[in-house]
Computed example of a mutant assay.
Amino acid sequence: MMPGAQIVNVVSFMPERVVDNTKLALDGEDDNELEKNAFFKGVKERRFASPEYQSSDLGSKALKLLLERTGTKPEALDLILCSCMFSDYFWPGIGPAIQNQVGASQATILNLDTSCSSYLSMLNTARAFIESGLYKTIAIVTVTNFVSRLPEFQKSKKSWVLGDGASATLLVDGKSSLVASYERSHGEHYGLFVFEPDMVDGRFLNYWERGCGPITVNFSPDMVTAIRSNAVELVPDAVSKCLFKAGLSTDDVSLLITHQPNTFLIKEWRDRIGIGEPRVHDTLEYYGNLFQSSIPVTLADAIEKNKVQSGDLLTFGTFSNGGDFVSSMVIRWT
């Protein structure tokens, strides 16, 4: 039998500190047009990780929980794939710290980043390694730990859809769970959505320059309009092409899980894809936008709530940044 990447389990580890959006007070007024935009609405509460947790702590907690639930010894791991926003240091990434903290002495690590699409990119990467025969047991870890580290940005309502959290997924050599995938880069949208230092004394300084401002996102109405236009087209198109590649229709899908950026995009994607309640699951309201942790945390939540059964066909869809990358995947839960 040819090697195949079988997903054994997916778990999440959420920081204990809850931020209740209904009790937050805004210092100053945001731009009225942006404040009313649905891009910044739909979240009742979220979790903050820092300073209680370093990013490596979050990843290690999630991975330890996964190993416990699956009865897997740390020494059995061959590879740990890791995606993180923000790492504990500018450089290096947190992969080696997680490997050491969980005692995965036989594992090598790979830090991977395609932003909000990173989880699906890592599933594809794990599949390639397992099918090649190079590795048999792979853990995928996502860590989102940044909005709690940006006190200046927290004063803006535009940050109130963002949360922190982590996930871990175990894949082994077995009956393949991955049915089809679709990934494309759209480099023409590079730089549309970025984290960068805020303005200081009327000018922008690069992050490597002395005296640069605090990290923020400098939203503008034109920027939001462009991101919305890209996202509403790219994700449904990717899901459609992925289902076609799998020889499936929307009627075959047991559960659709998309990225969780805001209520507007989630609804728009469902309407365009043609899958709605009860074949969807969200965590936006209580966890917020978790970037690369969004899909796996939502999947773990669906599993915990018994919305995923053996044999179910699950479909994922997400985009990255301002639309410079898009990804979709169909898996069969085994």
Score class of each variant (00 low, 15 high):
P221G: 15
H189P: 02
C212G: 10
S177R: 10
T216K: 03
D198Q: 10
Y190P: 00
S229F: 07
R184D: 03
S185N: 13
E183R: 11
P197W: 01
V194Y: 01
I227F: 10
G211S: 13
E196A: 11
D173R: 05
V200R: 11
F195A: 04
E183D: 09
F219G: 14
I227R: 10
A231W: 13
A180M: 03
G213C: 07
E196D: 07
G202K: 07
F193G: 03
S177M: 09
V194T: 08
Y190T: 07
S177P: 02
C212P: 08
G211K: 15
S229V: 08
V194H: 01
R184W: 01
E209M: 15
G202C: 06
I227P: 11
N230F: 00
E188P: 00
N206Y: 12
A231G: 13
L178D: 00
F193V: 09
F195D: 01
G187Q: 09
R184C: 01
F195Q: 03
D198M: 08
L205V: 08
D201R: 13
M223C: 06
D222L: 12
N218L: 12
Y207F: 14
R228L: 11
F204N: 14
I227M: 15
S229E: 12
A180I: 04
H186I: 03
G213M: 05
A226G: 01
P214T: 14
A231H: 14
F193C: 09
E188T: 00
Y182D: 04
S185V: 05
G191Q: 00
V179M: 01
V224W: 08
F204T: 11
I215D: 10
E183Y: 11
Y182A: 06
E209C: 08
N206E: 09
G211I: 05
I215R: 08
V217H: 11
S220V: 00
V179Y: 02
W208F: 11
M199T: 14
I227C: 13
V194I: 09
D198S: 10
D222K: 13
S177A: 09
S176M: 02
R228K: 10
T216C: 01
L178T: 00
E183P: 04
F195S: 04
G187W: 04
N206V: 09
H189Y: 06
G187R: 07
Y182M: 05
M199G: 12
G213L: 06
F195C: 04
N230Y: 02
R184A: 05
F195N: 04
G202N: 07
V200D: 10
V200A: 09
H189V: 04
G191F: 00
D173T: 04
A231C: 13
H189K: 07
S220W: 01
S185K: 12
S220C: 02
A226L: 05
R184F: 01
S220Y: 02
Y207G: 12
Y182L: 07
V194N: 04
